[in-house]
Design a protein around this nucleic acid. Structure first.
Lengths: 225, 225
DNA sequence: GCATGGCCGTAGGGAAACCGTAAGGAAGCC
DNA sequence: GGCTTCCTTACGGTTTCCCTACGGCCATGC
């Protein structure tokens, strides 16, 4: 479980890094808003811990930037206690708002509550089709009980499709989700990785039954054939 | 959006009922823990607002009871500010914890954030006619439960008609919507794709019952024949 | 009654866009 | 250094779109 800590207070970051690491989290840190956005695009954290009032880019702007391409949980940690600040951050797309100073065990409990909720996703914690099971909480894929190994990019693609089962996902959306790129140009990435996924998950990759193509639009994951 | 308010303070319940109703929520209230559990089982609320420290059944017990059968979001509202209470409630299955006294707009923002996360918003827009169902959110069309494949242009045309059910849509409007062209010249595109749609969706394409032609004007989608 | 013209539905074919897959090199990690 | 992963390119097959043509229906007018 990778967590991005964005705060301009080195001492707090250091304390959080120690505590979170001790609880099994994989911590990456950014000292300001701009760094947080770029680092998030690189590292693809599962959770974001975000300070408001950072230099170079305001916290709310960071939320907007992140929400442009990811739905990872965002917890705002801030010294501002006014309800206006809270409302602004939450409506921008944050999931929770904790005011400093805070008890570390409360923060950990809120992290647990949030991962419980998002791991469960819109529908179920485990999305299945055919003999394939996708566990969104543990990020693991099995086929006929056997573990299937996916590369990070393959997983990101499959995860997004699995979180919207049955829905058509446009090329543009997938590109934005996986590469955080605004360019619409399809250089063949999607076709490539979809080919890989089908090779690993479909009984007959040449005639896919669950990872379907909608020509001219995008892709769709369907449970039943 | 139905919300269950469980609190033993009649004055607070009254205030919440007024405010929440004004913001479009459908409010049901319970004065103690036992009543909250039974009422939840009856009314199936989409969100639960729960006080700790209620008579007859402790708040944490209520959470456990609810989590036995529902995954609806639970926000705890409590006067207890200790982190031990928060951790206990969150780990029992609550999604958020707000301490009294609280600002009502903060509570509303947290409600919005939570419904955004759980997708408990307004129901997915689905337009149906005959045995055909058009899901605008997932861009999928079914006929008698069977998936129907549409090309991008076919979908754009059907989508626009489905978004204006019963209304007459002029040729000019459709041309502009689908091809973004200002030219009014009908080269036969519309007739072409309407023919395709009828072939795929109408029981008898020769005698359409839902995708109707208004001679000299345009087309119209009607639900009942 | 019959020809005429406007409007509509349908079929077919060529062109363009789109998609799947293989192979190879570059970059990063252990 | 070996391995994995990512990016890039190229090519053949498929889907989709565009365009044209033809026949049916209806109202009008002779």
């Amino acid at each position: 479980m990778k967590i991005l800590v964005a705060d301009d207070d080195p001492q707090l970051v250091r304390a959080l890094r120690i505590t979170l690491s001790a609880h099994g989290y994989d911590v990456v840190a950014a000292p300001d808003g701009a760094a947080a956005v770029t680092l998030a695009a690189q590292a693809h954290p599962d959770i974001v811990l975000l300070d408001l009032g950072m230099p170079r880019l305001d916290g709310v702007e960071v939320i907007h930037a992140l929400r442009g391409w990811t739905s990872a949980p965002i917890i705002v940690v801030s010294g501002r206690t006014g309800s206006a600040d809270k409302v602004e951050a939450l409506d921008a797309g944050a999931d929770d708002y904790v005011t400093k100073p805070f008890q570390i065990d409360e923060l950990l409990a809120r992290l647990r509550a949030l991962s419980r909720r998002t791991g469960a996703g819109p529908d179920a914690p485990v999305v299945t089709f055919g003999d394939v099971a996708i566990d969104l909480a543990t990020k693991s894929v099995t086929r006929g009980g056997q573990r299937v190994h996916l590369t990070p990019t393959e997983w990101r693609m499959l995860e997004f499709l699995a979180r919207n089962p049955g829905a058509l996902v446009t090329r543009q959306t997938l590109l934005k989700e996986i590469w955080a790129s605004d360019q619409v140009s399809d250089s063949g990435y999607l076709r490539l990785y979809m080919s890989q996924l089908r090779k690993k998950l479909e009984p007959d990759p040449a005639q896919p039954r669950h990872l379907l193509t909608e020509s001219g639009m995008g892709y769709r994951l369907v449970r039943d054939a």
